[in-house]
Design a binder for these strands. Structure first.
Lengths: 235, 235
DNA sequence: GTATCCAAGTTTGTATCCAATTCGTGGACG
DNA sequence: CGTCCACGAATTGGATACAAACTTGGATAC
């Protein structure tokens, strides 16, 4: 073990999982690119063992795909396809809708506080999108934070775990097509308002519908963008 | 390597994942029981390496829980709690509802065939539940098959992957509380009929509502059972 | 009798090593 | 000049070895 890495000896496998996921979500490992254990191990400064474990998990979660080549398997970063993106957005929408319906059932005090938070984030999003030039990173972060806020507030550990696994994959689509998706911010803002209203008024059905609508519209916007600029990582 | 294991040398990690999941879902590894790598490795006839990888994945999926004890981690089979069960059933219901709404949008021919299949399974379930004594294993399998059938038919790879990860955990609750859940079969049968109708009539909203209702009612039934017999694996 | 400290055993976590297999490359032969 | 075979590099998959850290049991001292 190198002296530099000795400081955080523990849980290299978990660390490798997080870092590899980051690399994939941020597109530093390109969609469709072949993945080689020893390369990644060197890049992360560990041996292949934790990398293998992490890749196994990433494969189960859909970040990495395997195909059998003879009797062995080769791994590649999951490509971004129109169909997969649409399905992913619908599923995330369904999960977040459930989370939203839960937070809409919180007691008034918590609900109002949450709604105020969401409203503030949405307002910041509005301001940020009006800047010239807009800061894509900031837009992205605020958008993520808006959705994360009400999912966190719902409190369900299972929900949070699943959301934590699936959502970054939707973010991968948002991020890697962000240049082409940029113009759609305003459409999303109005939909966010509807979500905030549903939560503020304690109306689970309304909140649920609003979240679903937001994600399904986002799925359509994404599909159109992919249609226009082509899929990345598939050939 | 032993001669007996040599036949399926490839993919021991995937094999360990499947087998350990089976052991957990079937309760052969008791909820709350501590998990020791070397024990499992011996039990599965492999070294610790594939077992570790599998445990890592099972941890990410919620079959196994970890808590830090000093600077190391200890693993245990996830306990069965009332709250977790309820949340799980709601989430599975949400996912399957989406799948059902998709299959309700298939063309008439496929829909009818699927509805006929589902109806047949439901009928077998009725017959099996009327037998004396009923065969719990058969009831369980038919029930599982009913739900699996329309999820398979929806065709979404992401949906199937997520369902494949979450559903077995709901099945774990069903299975490990099955003795106490036995009486509730008939309630479920009527709800299944509503699902079949929604699909047969090509009404996505109806199918969605029916599936959600089925799972939410199941969640209530489960919660009452757990209330009565106590949680397993938590202390 | 109780508290504390030491030592051995257990368990985790990672690195290294080894076997198996595939793919590329070069050479030989038709 | 094309094709086929063979050898070697690269890569995967698993087992084993090794280090670190926690637990437990007992012994000893107060």
């Amino acid at each position: 073990m190198t002296a530099a890495a000795a400081g955080r000896t523990r849980d290299r496998a978990a660390g490798a999982y997080v870092r590899l996921r980051e690399l994939i979500v941020h597109g530093r490992l390109a969609p469709g690119a072949r993945v080689i254990e020893s390369e990644l191990a060197e890049r992360l400064g560990t041996s292949r063992t934790p990398v293998r474990s992490a890749l196994h998990r990433l494969q189960g979660e859909g970040y990495v795909v395997a195909w059998r080549r003879g009797r062995r398997t080769q791994l590649a970063v999951a490509p971004l396809t129109k169909e997969d993106g649409r399905e992913l957005f619908w599923i995330v929408g369904e999960l977040e809708a459930l989370a939203a319906s839960w937070v809409a059932r919180l007691e008034v005090r918590e609900r109002q506080e949450l709604a105020a938070n969401l409203s503030r984030i949405n307002h910041e999003l509005l301001l940020a999108s009006d800047e010239d030039p807009p800061d894509p990173q900031r837009l992205f972060d605020l958008h993520t934070r808006f959705h994360q806020t009400y999912v966190d507030a719902c409190g369900g550990p299972r929900m949070q775990a699943m959301h934590g696994v699936v959502k970054p994959q939707a973010e991968r689509y948002r991020r890697l097509y962000s240049t082409a998706l940029g113009g759609h911010i305003h459409a999303s803002l109005a939909e966010h308002e509807a979500i905030v209203r549903g939560i503020a008024q304690g109306d689970p059905a309304a909140a649920e519908v609003a979240v679903k609508a937001n994600w399904r519209n986002a799925a359509d916007r994404l599909a159109r963008v992919i249609e226009r600029v082509g899929e990345r990582g598939s050939w």
